[in-house]
Amino acid sequence: MTEDQFVALFAEAIGADPAMLTLDTPLQQLEMWDSVAYLAVMTMVDEQMEVVLPPDVLTGAKTAREILAKARQG
């Protein structure tokens, strides 16, 4: 999965405007980055990359780039 594809899927999962989101957007600045968004990203990553990310990866991530890196590590 490319970085652009990941950003698009990430934005769709959390209900963000993909044009306003990059891999390095600080997640804490996003109003929609909450517990419901954690579940949406967890399922998106599982479906797309067959990796179930532990919740602390999501709650502790500062950017989508960090989440993608963890997902790629498996």
């Binding site: 909450d34 517990s35 954690y38 579940l39 967890m42 399922t43 599982d46 179930v52 990310l53 532990p54 919740p55 999501l58 709650t59």
Partner: peptide
């Protein structure tokens, strides 16, 4: 941080952790 109010005598759930537990 998400605006949920409770005391120590109320039920607490870490939804993401329970979801992770369930789907794994």
């Amino acid at each position: 941080a998400e605006g949920n109010t409770r005391t120590a005598a109320h039920m607490y759930m870490n939804g993401a952790a329970i979801f992770y537990f369930a789907i794994t």
